[in-house]
Protein backbone atom coordinates (compact mmCIF):
# COMPACT_ATOMS: atom_id res chain seq x y z
CA UNK A 1 0.00 0.00 0.00
CA UNK A 2 1.08 3.55 -0.54
CA UNK A 3 1.94 5.73 2.42
CA UNK A 4 -1.11 7.84 1.74
CA UNK A 5 -3.58 5.08 2.35
CA UNK A 6 -1.94 4.04 5.61
CA UNK A 7 -3.51 7.09 7.22
CA UNK A 8 -6.97 5.99 6.31
CA UNK A 9 -9.29 6.11 9.24
CA UNK A 10 -10.24 2.76 10.74
CA UNK A 11 -13.53 1.14 10.06
CA UNK A 12 -16.47 2.82 11.88
CA UNK A 13 -17.17 1.17 15.18
CA UNK A 14 -19.70 3.13 17.14
CA UNK A 15 -19.48 5.27 14.02
CA UNK A 16 -22.97 4.83 12.67
CA UNK A 17 -24.66 7.16 15.14
CA UNK A 18 -21.82 9.72 15.01
CA UNK A 19 -22.07 9.78 11.26
CA UNK A 20 -25.83 10.16 11.51
CA UNK A 21 -25.52 13.22 13.77
CA UNK A 22 -22.86 14.75 11.55
CA UNK A 23 -25.08 14.14 8.53
CA UNK A 24 -28.06 15.85 10.14
CA UNK A 25 -25.92 18.88 11.07
CA UNK A 26 -24.45 19.09 7.58
CA UNK A 27 -27.87 18.83 5.93
CA UNK A 28 -29.39 21.43 8.26
CA UNK A 29 -26.57 23.87 7.56
CA UNK A 30 -26.89 23.38 3.84
CA UNK A 31 -30.68 23.79 3.96
CA UNK A 32 -30.52 27.21 5.62
CA UNK A 33 -27.72 28.57 3.41
CA UNK A 34 -30.05 30.65 1.19
CA UNK A 35 -31.32 32.46 4.32
CA UNK A 36 -27.85 33.44 5.50
CA UNK A 37 -26.89 35.67 2.63
CA UNK A 38 -23.90 33.56 1.60
CA UNK A 39 -23.37 33.79 -2.14
CA UNK A 40 -25.43 30.77 -3.35
CA UNK A 41 -23.38 30.34 -6.52
CA UNK A 42 -20.35 29.69 -4.36
CA UNK A 43 -22.14 27.06 -2.25
CA UNK A 44 -23.61 25.31 -5.31
CA UNK A 45 -20.21 25.16 -6.92
CA UNK A 46 -18.69 23.85 -3.70
CA UNK A 47 -21.44 21.19 -3.46
CA UNK A 48 -20.59 19.89 -6.93
CA UNK A 49 -16.91 19.69 -6.03
CA UNK A 50 -17.78 18.14 -2.67
CA UNK A 51 -19.63 15.32 -4.43
CA UNK A 52 -16.75 14.95 -6.85
CA UNK A 53 -14.26 14.68 -3.98
CA UNK A 54 -16.50 12.16 -2.17
CA UNK A 55 -16.61 10.02 -5.31
CA UNK A 56 -12.83 10.25 -5.61
CA UNK A 57 -12.50 9.36 -1.93
CA UNK A 58 -14.55 6.20 -2.42
CA UNK A 59 -11.79 4.96 -4.71
CA UNK A 60 -8.69 6.03 -2.78
CA UNK A 61 -9.95 6.11 0.81
CA UNK A 62 -11.72 2.78 0.70
CA UNK A 63 -10.20 1.05 -2.32
CA UNK A 64 -6.64 2.32 -1.87
CA UNK A 65 -6.43 3.41 -5.51
CA UNK A 66 -5.09 6.90 -6.31
CA UNK A 67 -6.62 8.14 -9.54
CA UNK A 68 -4.89 11.14 -11.00
CA UNK A 69 -7.36 11.53 -13.82
CA UNK A 70 -10.70 12.04 -12.15
CA UNK A 71 -11.23 15.32 -14.01
CA UNK A 72 -12.00 13.22 -17.10
CA UNK A 73 -15.26 12.08 -15.52
CA UNK A 74 -16.18 15.58 -14.43
CA UNK A 75 -15.42 17.04 -17.85
CA UNK A 76 -16.90 14.23 -19.93
CA UNK A 77 -20.21 14.28 -18.08
CA UNK A 78 -20.21 18.08 -18.32
CA UNK A 79 -19.75 18.06 -22.09
CA UNK A 80 -22.35 15.34 -22.60
CA UNK A 81 -24.94 17.10 -20.47
CA UNK A 82 -24.20 20.51 -21.98
CA UNK A 83 -24.45 19.16 -25.51
CA UNK A 84 -27.68 17.30 -24.79
CA UNK A 85 -29.27 20.40 -23.28
CA UNK A 86 -28.10 22.96 -25.77
CA UNK A 87 -27.96 21.16 -29.11
CA UNK A 88 -30.51 18.40 -28.66
CA UNK A 89 -32.79 20.47 -26.43
CA UNK A 90 -33.13 17.66 -23.87
CA UNK A 91 -34.83 18.17 -20.51
CA UNK A 92 -32.51 18.62 -17.49
CA UNK A 93 -33.17 15.13 -16.08
CA UNK A 94 -32.33 13.50 -19.41
CA UNK A 95 -29.27 15.70 -19.75
CA UNK A 96 -28.02 14.62 -16.32
CA UNK A 97 -28.73 10.98 -17.18
CA UNK A 98 -26.75 11.19 -20.41
CA UNK A 99 -23.81 12.90 -18.72
CA UNK A 100 -23.73 10.38 -15.88
CA UNK A 101 -24.06 7.39 -18.21
CA UNK A 102 -21.28 8.84 -20.36
CA UNK A 103 -19.02 8.96 -17.31
CA UNK A 104 -20.04 5.40 -16.38
CA UNK A 105 -19.10 4.15 -19.85
CA UNK A 106 -15.81 6.00 -19.62
CA UNK A 107 -15.29 4.33 -16.24
CA UNK A 108 -15.75 0.88 -17.75
CA UNK A 109 -13.33 1.54 -20.62
CA UNK A 110 -10.57 3.29 -18.68
CA UNK A 111 -11.08 1.04 -15.66
CA UNK A 112 -10.40 -2.12 -17.64
CA UNK A 113 -7.07 -0.61 -18.69
CA UNK A 114 -6.00 1.12 -15.46
CA UNK A 115 -7.01 -1.51 -12.92
CA UNK A 116 -4.28 -3.86 -14.13
CA UNK A 117 -1.66 -1.81 -12.33
CA UNK A 118 -1.28 -0.55 -8.79
CA UNK A 119 0.19 2.37 -6.87
CA UNK A 120 2.08 4.95 -8.88
CA UNK A 121 1.48 3.07 -12.14
CA UNK A 122 -2.26 3.20 -11.63
CA UNK A 123 -2.02 6.95 -10.97
CA UNK A 124 0.10 7.46 -14.09
CA UNK A 125 -2.22 5.43 -16.34
CA UNK A 126 -5.26 7.39 -15.17
CA UNK A 127 -3.34 10.63 -15.73
CA UNK A 128 -2.31 9.53 -19.21
CA UNK A 129 -5.86 8.51 -20.13
CA UNK A 130 -7.29 11.81 -18.92
CA UNK A 131 -4.64 13.75 -20.87
CA UNK A 132 -5.50 11.72 -23.94
CA UNK A 133 -9.13 12.65 -23.50
CA UNK A 134 -8.19 16.30 -22.94
CA UNK A 135 -6.65 16.45 -26.40
CA UNK A 136 -9.64 14.69 -27.91
CA UNK A 137 -11.94 17.32 -26.40
CA UNK A 138 -9.59 20.08 -27.55
CA UNK A 139 -9.95 18.92 -31.14
CA UNK A 140 -13.51 17.63 -31.51
CA UNK A 141 -15.97 20.23 -32.85
CA UNK A 142 -18.83 19.53 -30.42
CA UNK A 143 -16.85 20.84 -27.43
CA UNK A 144 -15.99 24.11 -29.21
CA UNK A 145 -12.36 23.74 -28.15
CA UNK A 146 -11.00 26.67 -26.16
CA UNK A 147 -14.39 28.42 -26.07
CA UNK A 148 -16.26 25.55 -24.47
CA UNK A 149 -20.03 25.13 -24.65
CA UNK A 150 -21.49 28.43 -23.49
CA UNK A 151 -24.91 29.75 -22.56
CA UNK A 152 -26.53 26.46 -21.68
CA UNK A 153 -30.30 26.68 -21.08
CA UNK A 154 -31.16 25.46 -17.56
CA UNK A 155 -34.77 24.52 -18.29
CA UNK A 156 -37.35 22.94 -16.04
CA UNK A 157 -36.44 19.83 -14.07
CA UNK A 158 -39.19 17.19 -14.43
CA UNK A 159 -41.12 20.00 -16.14
CA UNK A 160 -41.81 21.63 -12.76
CA UNK A 161 -38.70 23.12 -11.16
CA UNK A 162 -37.48 26.27 -12.87
CA UNK A 163 -33.71 25.93 -12.70
CA UNK A 164 -33.09 29.49 -13.83
CA UNK A 165 -34.41 30.63 -10.45
CA UNK A 166 -31.33 30.60 -8.15
CA UNK A 167 -33.23 29.39 -5.09
CA UNK A 168 -34.81 26.46 -6.95
CA UNK A 169 -31.52 25.58 -8.56
CA UNK A 170 -29.85 25.66 -5.14
CA UNK A 171 -32.21 23.10 -3.64
CA UNK A 172 -32.04 20.89 -6.72
CA UNK A 173 -28.24 20.88 -6.57
CA UNK A 174 -28.41 20.21 -2.83
CA UNK A 175 -30.79 17.28 -3.42
CA UNK A 176 -28.44 15.90 -6.07
CA UNK A 177 -25.48 16.25 -3.75
CA UNK A 178 -27.28 14.51 -0.87
CA UNK A 179 -28.40 11.69 -3.16
CA UNK A 180 -24.84 11.11 -4.36
CA UNK A 181 -23.44 11.44 -0.86
CA UNK A 182 -25.86 8.87 0.57
CA UNK A 183 -25.13 6.47 -2.28
CA UNK A 184 -21.42 6.69 -1.53
CA UNK A 185 -22.08 6.26 2.18
CA UNK A 186 -24.12 3.16 1.46
CA UNK A 187 -21.49 1.73 -0.86
CA UNK A 188 -18.85 2.18 1.83
CA UNK A 189 -21.06 0.43 4.37
CA UNK A 190 -22.27 -2.38 2.15
CA UNK A 191 -21.14 -5.99 1.76
CA UNK A 192 -19.16 -4.74 -1.22
CA UNK A 193 -17.60 -1.99 0.91
CA UNK A 194 -16.43 -4.58 3.43
CA UNK A 195 -14.59 -6.54 0.76
CA UNK A 196 -13.13 -3.33 -0.63
CA UNK A 197 -11.76 -2.40 2.78
CA UNK A 198 -10.34 -5.90 3.20
CA UNK A 199 -8.57 -5.56 -0.15
CA UNK A 200 -7.19 -2.15 0.84
CA UNK A 201 -5.93 -3.57 4.12
CA UNK A 202 -4.30 -6.72 2.77
CA UNK A 203 -4.74 -7.61 -0.86
CA UNK A 204 -2.72 -10.87 -0.93
CA UNK A 205 -4.79 -12.16 1.97
CA UNK A 206 -8.03 -11.22 0.21
CA UNK A 207 -6.82 -13.15 -2.84
CA UNK A 208 -5.92 -16.13 -0.68
CA UNK A 209 -9.49 -16.10 0.61
CA UNK A 210 -10.64 -16.52 -2.97
CA UNK A 211 -11.54 -12.94 -3.87
CA UNK A 212 -10.81 -11.86 -7.42
CA UNK A 213 -9.67 -8.47 -6.26
CA UNK A 214 -9.46 -6.88 -9.71
CA UNK A 215 -13.22 -7.22 -10.13
CA UNK A 216 -13.88 -5.38 -6.89
CA UNK A 217 -11.43 -2.64 -7.72
CA UNK A 218 -13.01 -2.27 -11.15
CA UNK A 219 -16.49 -1.89 -9.66
CA UNK A 220 -15.20 0.70 -7.18
CA UNK A 221 -13.55 2.57 -10.04
CA UNK A 222 -16.70 2.55 -12.17
CA UNK A 223 -18.88 3.66 -9.23
CA UNK A 224 -16.45 6.42 -8.40
CA UNK A 225 -16.29 7.58 -12.02
CA UNK A 226 -20.06 7.48 -12.43
CA UNK A 227 -20.66 9.60 -9.33
CA UNK A 228 -17.89 12.01 -10.32
CA UNK A 229 -19.73 12.29 -13.63
CA UNK A 230 -23.00 12.96 -11.82
CA UNK A 231 -21.25 15.87 -10.08
CA UNK A 232 -20.04 17.10 -13.46
CA UNK A 233 -23.57 17.00 -14.88
CA UNK A 234 -24.94 19.00 -11.94
CA UNK A 235 -22.16 21.53 -12.31
CA UNK A 236 -23.33 22.37 -15.84
CA UNK A 237 -26.50 23.89 -14.41
CA UNK A 238 -24.53 26.01 -11.97
CA UNK A 239 -21.81 27.26 -14.28
CA UNK A 240 -23.98 27.23 -17.42
CA UNK A 241 -20.98 26.19 -19.42
CA UNK A 242 -18.74 23.22 -20.05
CA UNK A 243 -15.11 23.98 -20.68
CA UNK A 244 -11.67 22.45 -21.00
CA UNK A 245 -10.79 23.53 -17.45
CA UNK A 246 -12.87 20.66 -16.13
CA UNK A 247 -10.91 18.01 -18.06
CA UNK A 248 -7.50 19.54 -17.44
CA UNK A 249 -5.03 17.63 -15.26
CA UNK A 250 -4.83 20.53 -12.79
CA UNK A 251 -8.47 19.80 -11.97
CA UNK A 252 -7.50 16.19 -11.16
CA UNK A 253 -4.85 17.62 -8.85
CA UNK A 254 -7.37 19.86 -7.13
CA UNK A 255 -9.61 16.87 -6.44
CA UNK A 256 -6.69 15.13 -4.73
CA UNK A 257 -5.97 18.33 -2.78
CA UNK A 258 -9.57 18.72 -1.59
CA UNK A 259 -9.71 15.15 -0.36
CA UNK A 260 -6.36 15.36 1.42
CA UNK A 261 -7.17 18.65 3.13
CA UNK A 262 -10.52 17.33 4.34
CA UNK A 263 -9.36 13.86 5.30
CA UNK A 264 -8.70 10.83 3.19
CA UNK A 265 -10.90 7.84 3.93
CA UNK A 266 -13.32 9.86 6.07
CA UNK A 267 -16.93 10.26 5.09
CA UNK A 268 -17.24 14.02 5.60
CA UNK A 269 -13.64 15.02 4.94
CA UNK A 270 -13.95 15.52 1.18
CA UNK A 271 -16.98 17.77 1.70
CA UNK A 272 -15.07 20.00 4.11
CA UNK A 273 -12.00 19.92 1.86
CA UNK A 274 -14.01 20.97 -1.18
CA UNK A 275 -15.56 23.91 0.69
CA UNK A 276 -12.16 25.03 2.00
CA UNK A 277 -10.51 24.96 -1.43
CA UNK A 278 -13.43 26.56 -3.28
CA UNK A 279 -13.73 29.23 -0.56
CA UNK A 280 -10.04 29.98 -0.93
CA UNK A 281 -10.37 30.37 -4.67
CA UNK A 282 -13.41 32.56 -4.17
CA UNK A 283 -12.27 34.84 -1.37
CA UNK A 284 -8.58 34.97 -2.16
CA UNK A 285 -9.30 35.82 -5.79
CA UNK A 286 -7.96 39.30 -5.10
CA UNK A 287 -4.46 37.84 -4.79
CA UNK A 288 -4.59 36.76 -8.44
CA UNK A 289 -1.97 34.19 -9.36
CA UNK A 290 -0.89 34.00 -5.73
CA UNK A 291 -3.87 31.77 -4.98
CA UNK A 292 -1.95 28.88 -6.50
CA UNK A 293 1.03 29.60 -4.27
CA UNK A 294 -1.18 29.84 -1.18
CA UNK A 295 -2.89 26.58 -2.15
CA UNK A 296 0.48 24.90 -2.58
CA UNK A 297 1.61 26.15 0.82
CA UNK A 298 -1.56 24.86 2.46
CA UNK A 299 -1.08 21.51 0.80
CA UNK A 300 2.48 21.26 2.15
CA UNK A 301 1.40 22.33 5.65
CA UNK A 302 -1.46 19.87 5.55
CA UNK A 303 0.74 16.94 4.59
CA UNK A 304 3.44 17.88 7.11
CA UNK A 305 1.34 18.74 10.16
CA UNK A 306 -2.10 17.24 9.95
CA UNK A 307 -1.80 14.33 7.62
CA UNK A 308 -5.22 12.99 8.42
CA UNK A 309 -6.88 16.15 7.12
CA UNK A 310 -9.33 18.41 8.95
CA UNK A 311 -12.01 15.81 9.61
CA UNK A 312 -9.47 13.01 9.96
CA UNK A 313 -7.69 14.84 12.80
CA UNK A 314 -10.98 15.67 14.55
CA UNK A 315 -12.15 12.07 14.25
CA UNK A 316 -8.81 10.82 15.54
CA UNK A 317 -8.82 13.24 18.47
CA UNK A 318 -12.29 12.22 19.62
CA UNK A 319 -11.69 8.60 18.60
CA UNK A 320 -14.78 8.78 16.45
CA UNK A 321 -15.40 7.79 12.91
CA UNK A 322 -16.69 10.60 10.74
Amino acid sequence: MTTITENAIPEPRRGTSDAMIAFVIMTALLLIVPLTGVYPFFVMQALCFALLACAFNLLIGYGGLLSFGHAMFLGTAGYFTAHALKVWGFTPELGILIGTLGAAALGVITGLIAIRRQGIYFAMITLALSQLLYFVYLQTPFTHGEDGIQGIPQGFLFGIFNLSKPITLYYVILAGFLLGFLLIYRAINSPFGEVLKAIRENEPRAISLGYKTDQYKLLAYILSGTLAGFAGSLKVFVAQNASLTDVHWTMSGEIVLMTLVGGLGTIFGPVVGAFVIIAMQQYLAGFGQWVTVIQGAIFVICVLTFRRGVIGEIAHYFKRSL
Binding site: R186, A187, N189, S190, P191, F192, G193, E194, V195, A198, A206, L209, G210, Y211, Q215, Y216, L219, L223
Partner: peptide, 21 residues
Protein backbone atom coordinates in the same frame (compact mmCIF):
# COMPACT_ATOMS: atom_id res chain seq x y z
CA UNK B 1 -16.91 -12.47 8.18
CA UNK B 2 -14.97 -11.36 5.12
CA UNK B 3 -14.16 -15.02 4.54
CA UNK B 4 -17.71 -16.24 5.23
CA UNK B 5 -19.14 -13.57 2.95
CA UNK B 6 -17.15 -14.73 -0.07
CA UNK B 7 -18.73 -18.17 -0.17
CA UNK B 8 -22.26 -16.94 0.23
CA UNK B 9 -22.17 -14.31 -2.48
CA UNK B 10 -23.58 -10.78 -2.25
CA UNK B 11 -20.04 -9.43 -2.16
CA UNK B 12 -20.69 -7.09 -5.05
CA UNK B 13 -23.86 -5.62 -3.54
CA UNK B 14 -22.95 -1.99 -3.03
CA UNK B 15 -26.57 -0.85 -2.67
CA UNK B 16 -27.39 -2.98 0.38
CA UNK B 17 -26.60 -2.18 3.97
CA UNK B 18 -23.81 -4.18 5.50
CA UNK B 19 -26.25 -5.22 8.20
CA UNK B 20 -27.13 -8.11 5.85
CA UNK B 21 -23.75 -9.48 6.94
Amino acid sequence: RVALQRQHGASFDFWRSKSVL
